[in-house]
Simulated scan of single mutants.
Amino acid sequence: MSGPQRVVIAPDSFKGSLAAPEVAGAIARGWQREAPDDEIVQRPLADGGEGTLDAFLAAIPGAQRRRIRVTGADGQPSDGSWVWLPPGAETPGGTGVVELASACGIETLGGRLRPWDAGTEGLGEAICAALDSGVTRLIVGLGSSASSDGGAGMLRALGAGTRDARGLPVAPGLRGLREVAEVDLSGLRSAPSGGVIVLADVDNPLCGPRGAAAVFGPQKGLLQAEIADADASLAAWARHIPAPADAPGAGAAGGTGFALRAWGGEIESGAAYVAEVVGLSALLTADTIVVTGEGAYDAGTASGKAPQVVIQLARSAGARAALVAGRIDPGAELSDLAAAVSLTELARGAASALAAPRHYLELAGQALARQLSASR
């Protein structure tokens, strides 16, 4: 066995359980117990959903969390935040990082799904708070959305007007889209001079069989019998907005990607962008091990989720990649991995793994260190 090695721990969050920094910390503790001389570097990741703010805070010196009060997905006041990044050559006012998940995400509803009424006003209010501070660039993370309102609530918070045939304001959420007869964008706040980067983990269009309602609506509480109506409502909304409804990522976060494109946003792969910002590729060499992970590793991971991005970067660098996941689907592709650990198998059941995730993540880190050190 050779001497100490560099181990980079770069997981996504385990949705509904632990944030990415907590996951990385637990794996690191377990690894260090088994191989105390190894150099451990933690780079928690995100794909635009929950944990995006934490990833920037952990990776960017001088980053600051700014607390705000916003309208939650259920229309009630909610605590939120955004992250300020220090100025650069192209961003003299700094960069604001805003995350839909923390402003009006599905987790904020506490299990009380409201598929027709949940809105995105909170995201627009968080964007306004960042603009009011003087930032000259915005990064908007999409993911974990509770709403399928096509971004209408966000646009209203930014100054747009949406009215029905009688000239009255429409109801919030997907329900209101059915009544929209007029959209006035003349009062919309200007995007910052440095641009708007939109981080998404899906490339779905707004409407159709791969659209926001058909693919993601059931996760937010839409019944199968309601999907056609919801899709038609989004299509009607699209006719009022100057953006391509069939563009990749337009269907992200219930159609918020579509609205952000109309505001001038450029949609990018969230996981790949965050990995670049945190400098992950620069840490990977042929003698490096990188450990990634997420709550459920399945066929959907290959569509650009954080673990897949890490595995691709490891392959390019000749580094060995390992995986820790809450659950590994039997049909998931594991050929590019040097090792993989399922917490469900380690704990002999999903309930036990969910009851003590830190404990089993530490055990997983220890098991990976033992296995990969022995194979050197």
Rank of each mutant, 00 (worst) to 15 (best):
P172D: 14
V310C: 00
I227S: 04
G143E: 05
A232L: 08
E294V: 01
I139M: 09
L57T: 07
G254Q: 03
G122F: 03
R210Q: 14
A271L: 02
P21V: 02
R67K: 14
V274E: 05
S342E: 10
A317C: 03
L100A: 05
D336C: 11
R163D: 13
W82H: 09
G208N: 02
L57W: 10
V97D: 07
R320H: 09
R315M: 08
V135T: 05
K305G: 03
V7P: 02
S144F: 15
A314K: 00
Q64Y: 12
G217V: 00
A347F: 05
I106P: 08
A238I: 07
G49A: 08
I106D: 10
P11G: 01
A325N: 01
G30C: 05
A213P: 06
A275H: 03
R320N: 06
P172I: 12
A20G: 04
A317Q: 02
G134M: 07
G331C: 11
A157C: 06
G208F: 03
Q366P: 14
A355R: 04
P244Q: 01
P4T: 08
T292R: 00
I241P: 06
L354K: 08
I27Q: 06
A353R: 00
L168V: 15
A314L: 03
P4G: 10
G251D: 10
Q308P: 11
S13L: 06
P61K: 09
G25R: 11
I267L: 12
S233H: 07
E362M: 11
R261K: 10
V183S: 09
R65N: 09
V98N: 06
D37M: 14
K305T: 00
A35W: 12
G96M: 06
R66L: 15
A24C: 01
G48E: 07
V8F: 04
L206N: 02
V290D: 00
R137P: 05
A130M: 02
G293Q: 00
T301F: 10
G194Q: 06
A356V: 05
E50C: 10
R189D: 09
R163T: 14
P61W: 12
P307G: 01
D12R: 00
A126T: 04
V170P: 08
L131G: 03
A332Y: 02
I311A: 05
V277C: 13
T256S: 13
G265K: 06
F258G: 03
G48D: 08
D37W: 15
L354A: 12
